[in-house]
Design a protein around this nucleic acid. Structure first.
Lengths: 157, 157
DNA sequence: GGGAAATAGTTTCCGCGTAAACTATTTTCT
DNA sequence: AGAAAATAGTTTACGCGGAAACTATTTCCC
């Protein structure tokens, strides 16, 4: 019997083995991070996925739209719309190269560069140790394990 | 200049400091876990959030719907629909207690109990070390850090 | 060279999850 | 007691993200 005391009194919830489930824990963690991100960024009217794409274009100008989508686990259908928003916002320009007219290569506009420059610290590193329940060492270890778990190394293998 | 080589050759993406962003890493990790979960569970026609709720009801029968929602970071509006699906599937019954007729308390039906019993291992512990890139120690350490990061201890504080 | 297959991206349509407004009930305050 | 405020959950309307089908272009291969 895993069952715990009656629990009809509220706000005392037994999670049991669920507290050992990575799927569950990751979902909660992600929601929390997302909420913080939103709080910090809603002023800029930009969503996490959008800034991530902006950032990757910043570091890899001229990459094909689909390549970025694959790396960030964004589905093509969504990528089309996401890029359209960034273009509409004036941050990104799409270039169809002559050697493969099916594809689209992405660049930052000067406005996009300025935005990334202006917000890089706030948006990328706002998850510093001091703002979380982890100390510096734990924070770093956490990031290491996340990278290993996801298969992300410093540069894509 | 953080910028890396031209990168017009595809499939070699520079993530830069993004690889140190918890928000980014958590998103990728969550997508991967979600995909595995789906693969394993689409046969049962059940989504992660739904099973989580089923599980929590299993461990805490008679809890109020809103209490569960808060603990699992599910918004009330969504909770209503999610519970409706579980009721429609015959797994959950809703009880309006006489002492507070605004509230709804949730119980598993016998069918719901059977479902949880039948699928608990597959659905909760399918993320064992052998299936991930982490070894046993790393896996456990990862879970510990996730719990600390999210503020989830064995029993809700 | 020319049709078949593959590739890049887009469009259409749909479900999940949310915010905001709403209903019903209970609690608080005077 | 009775009005005002708080609480529980629902309904409505909407945006994000995805699957499937589609268009355009390029590559394969006979």
């Amino acid at each position: 019997m895993t069952q715990t005391a009656a629990a009809i009194d509220d706000d005392r919830i037994e999670l049991g083995e669920m507290a050992g489930s990575l799927g569950f824990l990751l979902r909660i963690a992600q929601v929390q991070v997302f909420e913080e991100f939103y709080e910090a960024l809603s002023a800029h009217d930009m969503k996490p996925g959008e800034f991530t794409v902006l950032w990757v274009i910043h570091l890899n100008p001229g990459l094909r739209q689909g390549t970025i989508a694959r790396a960030l686990h964004i589905k093509p259908a969504h990528m089309t719309k996401l890029v359209a928003r960034l273009v509409a916002a004036g941050y990104v320009s799409r270039i169809t190269p002559t050697d493969d007219r099916r594809s689209v290569r992405l660049m930052l506009t000067s406005s996009g560069k300025a935005f990334v420059q202006r917000n890089r610290d706030e948006l990328i590193n706002f998850h510093k140790a001091e703002r979380s329940r982890l100390d510096d060492d734990e924070f770093e270890q956490f990031a290491v394990l996340l990278r290993k778990f996801t298969g992300i190394t410093e540069a894509r293998p």
